[in-house]
């Protein structure tokens, strides 16, 4: 489980970084999205990996905190996903505008000679 998650985060980060360094705006957006996925998984893993543990106390009062998953990173991930989604959507709009204004999809607005 730990190994799978670590490899997943690593692969996503690696591909994301490579794509962010590419010259096309579309690659940039995909790269940033992949990086965001990797980061979300990473935040999630910071609450320690637990299988089948509930994050919220069940009905009927307090249980043993040790049997429960940490709810804070899950809340953080939720916020991070929402914010990441919104800003990526915004970047997409800017990218389309840039495409329209400069008539190419290079991040600098013009092809290197």
């Amino acid at each position: 489980m730990e190994l799978t998650l670590a490899i997943a985060i690593g692969v996503l980060t690696g591909s994301g970084v490579w794509l962010v360094l590419r010259p096309r705006t579309y690659q940039l957006v995909i790269g940033l999205s992949l990086l965001a996925y990797a980061v979300n998984l990473f935040i999630f893993s910071m609450g320690r990996l637990r299988v089948g543990a509930a994050p919220v106390l069940g009905p009927g009062g307090a249980g043993d905190p040790a049997a429960l998953a940490d709810p804070v990173p899950q809340a953080l991930v939720l916020t991070a996903i929402v914010i990441g989604f919104a800003t990526t959507a915004l970047l997409l709009v800017v990218l389309l505008v840039a495409r329209g204004l400069t008539r190419n999809d290079h991040v600098d607005g013009r092809e290197p000679n």
């Binding site: 962010v20 705006t25 940039l28 940033l32 990086l35 965001a36 980061v39 990473f42 935040i43 910071m46 609450g47 320690r48 804070v72 990173p73 953080l76 991070a80 914010i83 990441g84 800003t87 990526t88 915004l90 970047l91 800017v94 990218l95 505008v97 840039a98 204004l101 400069t102 991040v107 600098d108 607005g109």
Partner: peptide, 28 residues
């Protein structure tokens, strides 16, 4: 503006991801 804005947004998005990594490491 759009070209400068594109760079600005991309850099700040990347920085925000670093922010998240840092925050979650500290929480962890």
């Amino acid at each position: 503006r759009v070209r400068a804005g594109l760079h600005y947004i991309a850099i700040n998005l990347a920085a925000s991801l670093l922010f998240l990594i840092g925050v979650s490491l500290i929480y962890g």
